[in-house]
Design a binder for these strands. Structure first.
Lengths: 121, 121
DNA sequence: CCTACAGTGAGTCACATGGCTAACAATCAA
DNA sequence: TTGATTGTTAGCCATGTGACTCACTGTAGG
């Protein structure tokens, strides 16, 4: 659980950077070598390398060495947990909103009844 | 779109901190005053305040002053975008994985056919 | 009016983060 | 073997972040 917390910390932190989200999007489409990822990026290679390491450390991405290239690709399991956390939060509080809405509607109904009574009187 | 990117940056960054995720979970259950949120937190009030500001700045939370208290609550729309981004990434790359799997299965099938041929021979 | 309560603002500090350059592997291709 | 290609490591720097304290404001209640 504490482990889980740390994992969420790292995944969210990893995704908080636009460069890293770009990498994720590229890799979602297809695995790529570091050099391919580097091409359109407006930064030095070592900087990109660091970003890749961050993604690797939090488990979003795996890499392996093939000849002198390093191939990066997404790890299928990685977003599950994060995604789960987000959906859960959303569902919890949207449920609360629904209850609230129902409550408000209930109040309005009473209001209407009162109005009718007033009118009848 | 650039705006969108910034929003994602901020939401992910906000959620990358365990204290702030705790606040979000508390507020998902029910709106609370700053003091209520503060009670179980192992930190100084101004520190907590800063976290609340971060959540407010990225749109996850709204606050309003009621008397001398400040009431905080979740904003329903806020996670939509983030959630959408995550699901999209997942679906894109899971689709890719499915295709890959299908491809691998295809290969295996060919393998099997070859094996059968060999055996027949 | 005065006191206690609930925040708030300003300023400090240690450390993490994202960027850079420069020098160093490791591997492929001629 | 030698040169070009593709990373990789180390180290530097500016900025951002999360934590703190201390002094302050605004509101409620007696």
């Amino acid at each position: 659980m504490a482990n889980n917390q740390l994992a969420l910390d790292r995944v969210f932190h990893a995704l908080a950077d636009p460069t890293r989200r770009t990498i994720v999007m590229r890799l979602s489409a297809e695995p790529s070598a570091v050099g391919d990822l580097f091409q359109p990026m407006p930064m030095a290679l070592p900087t990109l390398l660091k970003h890749i390491r961050v993604l690797e450390d939090c488990g979003l991405v795996t890499t392996r060495k093939v000849g002198r290239e390093r191939i990066c690709e997404m790890r299928p399991e990685a977003l599950r947990e994060t995604d789960a956390w987000l959906s859960q939060q959303r569902s919890v509080w949207e449920a609360r909103l629904d209850r609230m809405e129902a409550h408000v509607l209930g109040l309005q109904e009473k209001e209407n009844k009162n109005d009718k009574r007033k009118k009848r009187k």
